[in-house]
């Protein structure tokens, strides 16, 4: 039995929103845009809940780092079924290395047996934090998980890799990052939203960790991706094949 699973979660622009680049090229427009929990983190919360429901874990702690608006995402995590939440408050946009450093401090204090988190956040698409956290803790990692089986202090994790699937056997404590096929997250229900309001949520200022958050990267500009020229609609298969052969010259 794992005493505590920590699930770090992030508030991001909802996956259905097509973001727009700001005209001064300083970033993308996030004002008045729908925000949600990063979809891979929902999968991570769901997996933790299923492990607790299966009697494999006792407590689930969700953590987020960000402004007070990020508390909304923690409440969603609590409404889904997490037991407790920690909000590390900061107004700075932190890079994955700094996020991993903060998470390490919290994990050191909380003594988790397992960390489950999303493989990537769909805003900056970095795909780094889980691996970095595992390195800082000197814990083993299983990224891109599509199946998790725990027995004793071992986790057998099936990973989605470029060539197919791979299973790694980890000795816990460990870090697991989720891929799309791990599970289908449940929906938040109204009674659970009400219950979540009573669950404990602690706030810790990021400054209290005495870490250096100076950005290592300077964003020089954020621009629109190159536009594709507009195409044509063909009338028939015959015309399509003709165009591909004689105009685009991509088939013989």
């Amino acid at each position: 039995m794992i005493m505590k699973i920590i699930v770090p979660i992030k508030r991001v622009v909802d996956y259905n929103v097509k973001v727009r680049v700001k005209s001064d090229k300083s970033g993308v427009e996030t004002a008045n845009v729908k925000m949600s929990m990063n979809p891979f983190d929902e999968i991570a919360v769901e997996e933790a809940i299923r492990l607790r429901e299966a009697g494999k874990a006792q407590e689930i702690l969700v953590i987020t780092i960000g402004t007070s608006a990020a508390q909304e995402t923690l409440r969603t995590g609590l409404a889904l079924g997490a037991d407790r939440a920690i909000h590390v408050e900061t107004a700075s946009a932190l890079e994955p290395i700094n996020v991993a450093k903060i998470l390490k401090k919290v994990v050191d204090q909380e003594k988790a047996g397992l960390i489950i988190m999303g493989k990537q956040a769909i805003d900056d698409d970095s795909n780094q934090t889980g691996q970095m956290l595992a390195a800082l803790l000197d814990w083993p990692q299983a990224t891109f998980a599509s199946k998790v089986e725990l027995s004793g202090d071992q986790a057998n994790v099936t990973r989605e890799i470029d060539g197919g699937l791979e299973t790694v056997t980890l000795t816990m404590p460990a870090v697991i990052t989720t891929d799309l096929r791990l599970n289908e997250p449940r929906y938040v229900t109204l009674p659970n939203i009400m219950k979540a309001k009573k669950k404990p949520l602690d706030t810790i200022p990021a400054d209290s960790f005495n870490l250096d958050f100076d950005p290592r990267h300077q964003i020089l500009e954020v621009s629109e991706p190159p536009e594709r020229g507009s195409g044509i609609v063909v009338e028939s298969v015959e015309q399509l094949v003709d165009k591909l052969k004689n105009e685009a010259k991509v088939i013989q």
């Binding site: 622009v13 973001v19 993308v28 769909i122």
Partner: peptide, 13 residues
Amino acid sequence: IYAGNAMAKIKSR
């Protein structure tokens, strides 16, 4: 970034 809906030019220190 953002599923390729924006391109970030980044200078590393």
